[in-house]
Amino acid sequence: MNRASLLELLKHPQRTTALSPSGWTEFIATARNANLLGKLAQRLHAANVSVPAAPLRHLEGARLLSERQHHSVAWEAQCIDATLAQTGEPVVLLKGAAYVLGRKAAGVGRLFGDIDVLVPPGSLGKVEIRLMAGGWTQMKSEAYDQRYYREWMHELPPMIHVRRGTVIDVHHTILPLTARSHPDADAIIAHSKPLPGHRSLRIPCDEDLIIHSMCHLAHEGELHNALRDLDDIDSLLREHADSPDFWDRLGDRAQLHDLAAPVALCLMLARQFFDTPVPESLVLRLAGADADAAAIRRLAGLYDAAIVPDPEGRPPLRSLAAQLLIYIRSHWLRMPPRLLVQHLSRKAWQRLSLASGAGPKNEQGA
C-alpha cells in the first residue's frame, strides 16, 4: 500500500469498506509499522465502520491497548504528581502524556512507551532525588552515558520504576544544550497551564505544545514514528485552524524559541502529507529570506522521500538514502563538529568492545 492510500484511509476511514482481504492485510501491516494502528482503530470505531472479522481482531487489540495505555499514563501521572509535589516545582508534561491528559485529539488512539516531563533547570537535583526515593532508578549505568546526558543533553538519563517498569524522561529544555537552536524553556514553563486534579503537573500552552512536537520531528534522526508525529501535528493544528489570531501566536512563539525554520518545515510537511489548512503567509514569514526558504523546501523534499511507510518495514533504496541523510543532519544539529566526532568515535568503540565481549554487559548506548 502506498503512502497516499494510507493517508487517504486515515483521513476517511469509511473508505476502508472498499478494501479487499489482501488490501486489509496490507493496510493493517502498513499502519502498524507506522505506529498508527491505534489511531486507525479508534477512528474506525468512532465512525462505526463495519470491519471484517480478521482485521477487526488486530484493530480491536490496538484500540484496547491504547485505552489501557491511557489509563496507565493517567495513573502514572498521579504517581509522579504525588512524588514531585513536595519539591514545589512545576512539572510540565510533554508530547503523548500531554495530549492524553490534556484531552487533545492527537491523543486519541495514540500509543507510546514513556512519559516526558519538563522541569526548571535549577530543580533537577531535587526532582531526581525525589524520583529515586519514589522508586525510579537510572537506566544508564556507564560513566560516559551519564556525562553525555548531564553535560550536553536536554534531559537527565532516562529513569525506570523498579516495580511498575514505567519510564520517565526528565527534561530541563527541549533541545540539547549543544544544539544550534536554543528554545526558551523558562517561557514554556511560565506559559504552561495547571492540569486539573494535580498539584504540580502542568500542560504547555497550545502553541508550545505544537512547537515542541514540530521541534522533535525536525531534529530527530530516527523516522520510524515520523508519520505518526505528523498526524499529531495535523490534529493539533486543526483544533485551532479557525481561530483568527492562532497562526500569528504560533509564529510569534516559534520565533521566541529560535525555532522558526523547524516550524516552517513541519508546517510544509503537514500541508504536504495531510492537507492541513496552514496559511501560506505564516510559512513565508517563518521560512525567511529566499535562500533560506529554498533550503527548507529542499529539506521538505528529503522528508517526503524518507517517510514512506511499508507493510514489511523495508522501504525502497531511495527512502533509505534520504533517511540516512536526515540521520546525519540530526547529529550535525545536535553537536558542534569536534564534539560530535568525539562522541561518535566513543560510541563506535563501545559497540566494538561489546561485540568482542570486552565491554560492560549492561551498557546501553546514549
Rank of each mutant, 00 (worst) to 15 (best):
K140V: 06
L56H: 14
R103T: 09
Y303W: 08
G357S: 11
H45G: 11
R228C: 14
P196V: 07
M1H: 12
H161N: 01
S20R: 06
P309N: 11
G107M: 04
Y148V: 03
P315T: 06
E60V: 10
K104V: 04
R3P: 03
N33V: 11
V100Y: 04
P279K: 04
P21M: 06
P90W: 09
A306G: 00
H58T: 14
A54L: 09
P157I: 06
D290T: 02
L64E: 01
N48E: 13
H70W: 11
A18Q: 12
A264Q: 08
A185E: 04
M268D: 03
E207D: 09
R199P: 00
L324V: 06
A291G: 07
G38K: 05
T25F: 13
P204T: 01
S66F: 06
D304I: 10
W332H: 10
A321Y: 11
G251D: 00
L317R: 14
L36M: 02
A53N: 04
L177G: 01
F246L: 04
T137M: 14
V263E: 01
A29F: 12
L265C: 02
R298A: 15
A294V: 08
N2L: 03
E207T: 08
W24C: 03
I203N: 06
R297H: 11
S356I: 11
G107I: 03
R3I: 10
R15V: 10
V117W: 07
K361V: 10
V117L: 14
D242E: 06
M132H: 10
H58W: 15
G23C: 05
I233T: 08
L259S: 05
M335I: 01
Q69Y: 13
A179K: 02
L236T: 12
Q323Y: 02
L286T: 01
Q350V: 04
H191P: 13
R147M: 15
P55F: 04
R318L: 04
H257R: 09
L36S: 01
H172G: 06
R314F: 10
G61N: 14
L175F: 02
V127W: 11
F27Y: 03
T87N: 13
L84S: 10
E363I: 00
L302Q: 11
V162G: 08
D310C: 11
R199V: 01
A54R: 05
V51C: 13
H71D: 13
K39F: 12
L227P: 07
G251N: 00
R164W: 10
L227R: 07
S330H: 12
T173Q: 14
E89T: 11
L340I: 04
